[in-house]
Design a binder for these strands. Structure first.
Length: 500
RNA sequence: CGGGCCGUAGCGCAGCUUGGCUAGCGCGCUUGCUUGGGGUGCAAGAGGUCGGGAGUUCAAAUCUCCUCGGCCCGACCA
């Protein structure tokens, strides 16, 4: 057994921590090994590496398409916000005060303990690094809006924000994170509500159809609402360890921020009135959700519609003349596939054996792998392997340019179907408080329970088993039942789960 | 901020209990050959303020104190 103390190279530097040992460890290990992100010198701040950023750019492009199609425009607002702005909306400041980075000086000088803020340069009013931009954007909207004709304002911002969280996890909760935040102002309540719903639907669509990540769409309970919102809508995904992930939110802000920032306009009737606003956002957390939804112990599994590389080609040869033949065969294949719109990459690194490359690209989640060697060149074939499972098969290269795009779509659908089957099997219905706690602790997943809106019961559940109300969906409600905790009759069924 | 674990080569670690040879191993890296369809093999080589500071000692990676940093679990959260 002494030998087993010295694992081979295979076990040591490649391969991923198995999911079974510790899910959180598996996840972080995967993110680091697949080179999506890295730890930075500043605790809690994540370095997004090129491969991770390529994924994010794909996600961004998809969202931008939907945002523009629904009449939104991109703009950019300041990183620094006067402290007083935050205080203008009471519940907003309460929600974010505990996690704000504060800028107090504008200059450094050499002091007794080395370089330090120059006391002379103290700002009269501290600035905060934006944790979200409702306030600064609200203050601008107040200037831009005079008349009902100036509405609606439909603006989105791609930005980084800072929230000084106690504990962080790559992509899921980092001190600085990247996101988009949409901020709209409307003439009527109905329009603002419609906007809120429209955007949560965009989020659902992108999550399900592009990330292949099934989500529940619903409303937050008052306790889980965004600080300052009237209603918060959300999409909730389920990770493979049975914990929920809030993947996006869309807030109906009513006139709260309009009143705080005096976004007023003269209406069609000549009366001064406050605008109705919304805000909505998704973040780099989506990448974390993507990883935890599909990946396995061999590495990432990326849905084809998002994968920066959809198909990787591994050329194989022995002698120089074989290399020549393989290379020109591969070149022709690449041209054909690129012509068909497939994002293809040739791994021609000479320092690695094919076996190494197979594992390497599996770790990175590339949906399809094509192996091309002398045998294939002679036969007009290549070896095709799917990342999401199944046997390798030998296929004709003729016609691949039509076959691959279809296969990629098939994989996309298969990933969604698999994740959805898992998610659906993880939704359980309970009728009592005890049953709820027991199910959460023993099985995890989403648990539907009757709840009459009693915040004390909600808090008690959270304290007892860490589960929170993830969302409330109309389609779950209707059946009469005795509410957990209180025993009062209710028709409201809500989704509980432990969450990230 | 509370509880636990950990800082030794780019990465992963052993050595510390019981102080003592020139501080080791695997991977990676460099050079050359070999190999190539599931993590090649051989040879040579480069790479270290043992997180930092102070102390004990003839002698400290090892013992003591202080300090800094990281990770995990809690409270907080997109």
């Amino acid at each position: 057994m002494a030998d087993s103390q010295q694992p081979s190279s295979k076990d040591k530097n490649l391969g991923v921590t198995p999911r079974a040992t510790d899910y959180a460890l598996w996840y972080q290990d995967l993110v680091l090994k697949a080179e999506l992100a890295d730890y930075s010198p500043v605790k809690g701040c994540m370095v997004v590496r090129p491969y991770g950023w390529a994924l994010w750019e794909k996600i961004r492009d998809i969202f931008d398409g939907f945002f523009k199609a629904t009449g939104h425009q991109n703009a950019q607002f300041p990183l620094l916000i006067p402290l007083s702005f935050l205080a203008k909306e009471a519940s907003h400041v309460e929600g974010f005060a505990k996690e704000c980075a504060v800028v107090t000086h504008y200059r450094l000088k050499a002091g007794p303990n080395g370089i330090e803020p120059d006391p002379e340069s103290k700002l009269e009013e501290p600035l905060i690094v934006r944790p979200t931009s409702e306030t600064i954007i609200g203050s601008m909207y107040a200037k831009w809006v005079q008349s009902w004709r100036d509405l609606p304002i439909l603006i989105n911002q791609w930005a980084n924000v800072v929230r000084w969280e106690m504990r962080t996890r790559l992509f899921l909760r980092t001190t600085e994170f990247f996101w988009q935040e949409g901020h709209t102002a409307h003439e009527t309540e109905a329009e603002a509500v419609a906007e809120t719903l429209q955007m949560i639907e965009v989020y659902r669509k992108v999550a399900e159809e592009f990330l292949a990540m099934p989500v529940l769409v619903g409303m937050k309970s008052p306790a889980e609402r965004f600080a300052g919102a009237i209603d918060t809508w959300c999409i909730e995904a389920l990770m493979q360890d049975g914990k929920a992930l809030q993947a996006g939110t869309s807030h109906f802000l009513g006139q709260n921020f309009a009143k705080a920032f005096e976004i007023q306009f003269s209406g069609r009737d000549g009366q001064k009135q406050h605008a109705w606003t919304t805000s909505w956002g998704v973040s780099t957390r989506l990448i974390g959700g993507l990883v935890m939804t599909h990946s396995d112990d061999k590495g990432l599994v990326l849905p084809p519609r998002l994968a920066p590389i959809q198909a990787v080609i591994i050329p194989i040869w022995r002698k120089d003349e074989e290399k020549l033949a393989v290379t020109s065969y591969v070149d022709a294949l690449v041209t054909k596939l690129k012509g068909a719109g497939v994002r293809v990459h040739v791994d021609d690194r000479e320092q690695f054996k094919p076996g190494y490359k197979f594992n390497d690209w599996e770790l990175r989640g590339v949906p399809l792998r094509l192996e091309v060697g002398p045998r294939d060149v002679a036969a007009g074939k290549c070896v095709l392997a799917r990342r999401d499972g199944g046997e390798k098969q030998i296929v004709d290269v003729a016609g691949l340019e039509t076959r691959l795009p279809m296969l990629l779509e098939e994989i996309q659908a298969a990933l969604f179907a698999k994740a959805k089957a898992f998610r659906d099997a993880s939704i359980r219905r309970v009728h009592t408080y005890e049953e709820l706690v027991q199910t959460i602790e023993e099985k995890g997943g989403f648990v539907l329970a009757p709840w009459d809106g009693d915040a004390a019961v909600e808090a008690k559940v959270k304290e007892e088993c860490k589960a929170t109300i993830r969302c409330i969906r109309k389609e779950d409600c209707g059946e009469k039942a005795k509410a957990i905790g209180t025993g009062k009759e209710t028709e409201q069924w809500v989704v509980f789960a432990k969450a990230y």
